[in-house]
Computed example of a mutant assay.
Amino acid sequence: MNGSEIFKVGFLIFPGFPMACLTSIIEPLRAANEIAGVEVFDWDVVSESGARTISSARVAFEPDARLADVGDVSLLFVLGAPTSAFEDARQGNGALRRLDRHGVTLGAISGGVFALARAGLIEGHRCSVHWCYETAFRDAFPHIEMTGDVITVDRRRITVSGAASAFDLALQLIEDRLGAHMAHEVACWFQHATMRGHGVQQRIPMRPSAAPDLPPLVARAVALFAAHMEQPISVAEVAAQLQVTPRQVERAFKKATGQSPTHYYRSMRMKAARQLVLYSKQSMSHIAQAVGYTSATPLLTHYRAAFGVNPQEDRRQINSFRVQGNVPLPPA
């Protein structure tokens, strides 16, 4: 691309947006301008009303404009929490649709994908969703195709899973405008070791003591468990599908994870339940059904055993970190 024209990016921030995601994409663009000695990239931070907006880190930002006045950007990213919503949904969603009609590429970073989906602007597109929001997103938007990639580009939609991925995307924008050498120099400035692109899967951080990979038999069993959250599958059924005995499954799980397959499966279901507790406003009965319980009673028991608090207490605790009703997001 021609680097002589300024490429302008907009960032729509909701209260409680992840500050790390914003700075991770702006700072590489700023550095590229500095190294190039010319303004190649420009950006505006905008909010629904143009009012001062507080991030998840409780740092306040003064937007450059209100959303309704934005019109000169080539690319606009939405940054927010899974529960972020416009105060005036009709006008806010209408402003996003107007930008789309005028050819602006729309995107979202981390939890911002929820707001973009609520606006109906990811219909028929694939999108990246941070791994810790997968269950909540699938529950809210079961018809939208979700990927575990760090970055997904589908026509005029760009979705990014988190802050580290936002840095990777900034490097791609720099490479597109100024070439691979400049992208490499910017990466070196920030000691950013690897530039990840489309098709690269997110990696879930693991404790140092955790095994980095599961044996094939266990991995296949885990995949079956993951596919049967709402309608649980028994260990015997898993064994039958894998053409082994239940005893073989038991031994393989004990050796690889230190847990029985039943306890491992329950842990998976509790982690999924916690996503819905923290990142949705669903009732406990709905959450229980989403992870395979016929009522909320056993969910409450297993949830407390797993996390030391019941779901309602957990939701109240995260509320103490919310800003104007929104949940802070993970930075990466």
Rank of each mutant, 00 (worst) to 15 (best):
P328K: 09
V323P: 05
M284T: 01
A296R: 04
A290D: 02
P328N: 07
H286W: 07
Q282V: 12
Q289S: 14
P328Q: 04
S280E: 03
G308C: 07
M284P: 01
S285R: 12
L329K: 12
T297R: 02
L300P: 01
A296T: 02
E313L: 15
L276Q: 05
H302G: 06
F307M: 13
P331A: 11
V309F: 08
G325R: 14
F307P: 04
V291R: 01
T297N: 00
I318E: 03
V277W: 03
R322G: 15
P298D: 02
S295L: 02
N310E: 11
S283A: 09
R274W: 05
A305Q: 11
R315H: 12
I318T: 08
V323R: 12
A290R: 11
P328M: 07
R315E: 03
T301P: 00
L299S: 05
G308R: 04
F307I: 10
L276S: 02
Q324G: 13
Q289F: 10
S295M: 02
V323L: 12
S295A: 07
S295K: 03
N310L: 13
S283D: 02
Q317S: 15
Q317P: 05
R315I: 05
L299Y: 04
H286A: 15
I318V: 13
D314Y: 05
N310I: 12
N319S: 14
V277L: 08
V277A: 09
S280W: 08
G325T: 07
K281E: 05
T294A: 11
S283W: 00
S285E: 10
S295C: 08
V291I: 13
K281M: 07
Q289P: 04
T301S: 15
A288Y: 01
H286E: 09
Y303P: 01
P331W: 08
D314Q: 08
I287C: 02
P330T: 09
Q312W: 02
L276H: 04
A296K: 06
N319Q: 11
L329P: 09
Q275K: 08
R274L: 05
P330K: 14
L276C: 08
I318P: 00
Q324M: 15
Y279W: 13
A288W: 00
S295F: 02
F307A: 12
R316S: 14
M284I: 01
Q324H: 15
T301E: 11
S283M: 00
V323C: 08
N310G: 14
R315L: 11
I287D: 00
V323E: 06
Q324Y: 15
Y279K: 01
H302E: 09
L278C: 13
F321H: 14
V291Y: 02
E313F: 11
